[in-house]
């Protein structure tokens, strides 16, 4: 079943993951694999665009938790963008805005990487 898809592209040396569909215990391993591949090739500047993400459960949230430390150790970050209110509520309920930068749009998040570098 293709209820979850990940698109991948690069903007100004920042890796964009576009999530589409339903992220639950069944589909979370796909996201895990995408992060593993980025880390393997030392790509630590990651923006996750959630515009087409319809649903997230704790299994999906757990994937972000699993990789954030390694990403930050590599001097990068995972930034999240374009969340629907429904998806944002789940992140918010668990206090994720304390740990992750969440932006309204992708470009804002990309720019943020270069603000920091200055």
């Amino acid at each position: 079943m293709s209820e979850f898809k990940i698109g991948q592209r690069e903007v100004e040396n920042v890796n964009i993951l576009e999530l589409k569909g339903y992220l639950d215990a069944h589909t979370a391993p796909k996201l895990e694999e995408a992060f593993q591949n980025l880390l393997k090739s030392q790509r630590f500047r990651i923006v996750v665009n959630c515009r087409d993400l319809s649903y997230i459960s704790s299994a999906g949230l757990g994937v972000f938790m699993a990789f954030i430390e390694d990403v930050r150790n590599g001097k990068g970050d995972i930034k999240l963008t374009n969340m629907s209110p429904k998806v944002y509520n789940v992140f918010d309920l668990l206090g994720f805005p304390l740990l992750y930068e969440i932006f309204k749009d992708e470009q804002e998040a990309v720019t943020r990487f270069f603000d920091r570098a200055k």
Partner: peptide, 13 residues
């Protein structure tokens, strides 16, 4: 969150 733990969030939710 500050210790990057994983799992166990489901019950809390």
């Amino acid at each position: 969150l500050t210790h990057f733990r994983r799992g166990g969030l489901g019950v809390y939710l």
